[in-house]
Design a protein around this nucleic acid. Structure first.
Lengths: 145, 145
DNA sequence: ATTCCTGCAAAAAATTTGCACGCTT
DNA sequence: AAGCGTGCAAATTTTTTGCAGGAAT
C-alpha cells in the first residue's frame, strides 16, 4: 500500500504521488524511468498531471529516500524505486535495457580506496555500459524496446 | 605542442582550440573542468571566444579522443584531457576536488560481471563521492577552492 | 580559393519556480 | 479551516544549432 509509504515520509496522500509510486513499482515495465517517461505514462493512463509535478514529486521522493536518482550517460536523470539493498547498474547502449548487480568485492575495494586517499566516503556510483544479449545478435538488429 | 595533436585529429589549428587545450593541460589548476569554467578562464585571459565555441570544441575533442567527458553528480558535464591510461574518480562533495585512482581488481571484476550477464562491455564509469581530507577538518570549514 | 571555424543570437532540452486555486487532514 | 499540493506558464540552466563573416591550408 503506497499510502503508508507516503504518510511515513510525511507527505500527504495525493493522486499524483500515489500514481507515480505505482508506476515505479510496476514490475512489468522498466523500473528505471525518466521524469518524461513517467509523465507520458500518466498522460496515457488518463490523468491531468503536469510534468512539473512529476519532477516535484520525484524530488520529494528522493529526499524521503523512497527513490534513487541516477545519471546515466546521455544526460537526463532516471529514477528508480529505492530497494533495500544497494546495487549497481549495467546499461545497454543500444536498447536502453538496465540490469542490476551487486558485488561485495567491488564494494569492499571502494572503501579501501577511499580510506587510502583519506576521503570520508558518502556515496558512489558504478555504471557499466555495453550491448545486452539481445542487441548482440546479428540476426535481430531491432530488438524489442 | 598542441598543434600536433590538433593536426593529428584532423582539426585546423585555431586560437580557440589551442587555448582550450592549453587550459586542460595546465597542471596548476584542476584538470576536470566544466565548459562554463573553461569559458570563464578564457574570458579572464583576454579572448573573444564564445561559450558555444567552447562546447563545440570540447565535443570535437571528445570525438577525436583527446578529451573525456564525465557526468558527475549534480548535473553538468566535466571535461578532462584524455591521458593514456584509464582511471576512475573520487569527488569531494563539498569543495569539488577531484582525485583519480585506478584499481585492477575492480576492473577485472567488472569484466567478469559483464561476462556473466552476457553483456558486451564497451565502457564504464565509477565515481566515489565523499569529503576530501581538507573538508573533514572541523578547524578549517572553508578550504581553498 | 576552398573549406573549415567562429561569434552571436536564437533554439532546444531538462528542470525549477511563482502563483492562484483545490484537495487532504 | 489551515496548510500543503497541483496545474499551468514562465523562468532557469545547460547545451546545441543556424547563419554570415573570417581564418587556416
Amino acid at each position: 500500500m503506497e499510502t503508508h509509504d507516503l504518510r511515513n515520509a510525511g507527505l500527504k496522500v495525493t493522486l499524483p504521488r500515489v500514481k507515480i509510486l505505482q508506476i515505479l513499482e510496476n514490475e512489468s515495465t522498466d523500473r528505471h524511468l525518466t521524469a518524461e517517461k513517467i509523465y507520458k505514462i500518466l498522460l496515457a493512463e488518463d490523468g491531468d498531471i503536469g510534468l512539473a509535478t512529476v519532477y516535484r514529486v520525484l524530488t520529494q521522493f528522493e529526499s524521503a529516500g523512497l527513490v534513487t536518482r541516477h545519471h546515466f550517460e546521455g544526460g537526463n536523470s532516471v529514477f528508480e524505486l529505492a530497494k533495500g539493498s544497494h546495487h549497481d547498474h549495467i546499461v545497454c547502449i543500444k536498447c536502453g535495457k538496465v540490469d542490476e548487480f551487486s558485488d561485495e568485492l567491488i564494494e569492499a575495494r571502494q572503501k579501501e580506496i577511499a580510506k587510502k586517499l583519506n576521503y570520508q566516503l558518502t556515496d558512489h556510483s558504478l555504471y557499466l555500459y555495453g550491448f545486452c544479449p539481445q542487441c548482440q545478435k546479428k540476426t535481430d538488429p531491432f530488438p524489442t524496446l
